[in-house]
């Protein structure tokens, strides 16, 4: 008997009688008042936040915060200045290891924890939102939902090979519980909430 068979037969011999799964519908919420809560939670997990109404506005903010000579990469086609199909198609580590700012679109934000859902379609390269020094995410104002329960309702309607929730910049408190922002991933996370998507 190989290990697979050994384990599976031990499981079937030892598992208790079947008990049913619980009903989860009572946890769902309506979406009213979500945006304010999202902003508050995003700030509490160390994120920065701007309401914007155009992509130009985003570019201006990025330039004013980061200065001129930074390697800014975007997977958002509307940000033409930072978008390069050729760059995004090159998966070499040498290509992406020194990115200063990555700008991506998020699918939706979760009000209860400030997390934003991104799939590999928005990332183009999975390492992108992790390896950059600073991360910026653009979110539509109407894509903020109350809790993780609604999140998985939405997620059930999309396909991905890899996807992640990101809530704020990379951080650690491993040294005496002192919070330090910028562990291995981005040192900052900025969220642009687009009020009138152009």
């Amino acid at each position: 008997m190989n290990s697979r068979e050994k384990i599976l037969s031990a499981v079937i011999a030892n598992q208790p009688e079947l008990v049913p799964l619980p009903e989860l519908s009572s946890f769902e919420r309506n979406a009213s008042g979500c945006s304010d809560k999202f902003v508050a939670m995003l700030k509490s997990v160390g994120g920065f936040f701007y309401y914007v109404s155009s992509y130009d506005e985003i570019i201006n903010i990025l330039l004013s915060v980061n200065g001129e000579n930074k390697k800014i990469i975007s997977t958002v086609t509307e940000l033409t200045a930072y978008y390069s199909e050729e760059f995004l198609n090159n998966p070499q580590i040498s290509n992406i290891h020194d990115i200063d700012v990555a700008v991506l679109k998020g699918r939706f934000g979760v009000a209860e924890n400030g997390a934003i859902w991104l799939t590999d379609q928005e990332m183009r390269q999975r390492a992108l939102p992790f390896i950059c020094q600073h991360l910026a995410v653009i979110l539509n104002a109407d894509s903020i939902i109350p809790t993780m329960h609604e999140a998985y309702e939405l997620i059930s309607k999309v396909t991905y090979d890899f996807a992640t929730f990101i809530a704020g910049p990379s951080k650690t408190a491993d040294i005496e519980q002192s919070l330090v922002i910028g562990a291995h991933g981005p040192r900052s996370m900025t969220v642009f909430v687009m009020i009138n998507d152009q």
């Binding site: 997990v45 924890n113 997390a115 090979d161 890899f162 929730f165 990101i166 704020g168 910049p169 990379s170």
Partner: peptide, 17 residues
């Protein structure tokens, strides 16, 4: 675990690159 509302990253690995 830590009193945070969620970890910074909750990554869903479905297929290899």
């Amino acid at each position: 675990a830590t009193g945070q509302p969620i970890t910074t990253y909750s990554s869903h690995f479905k297929k290899p690159r």
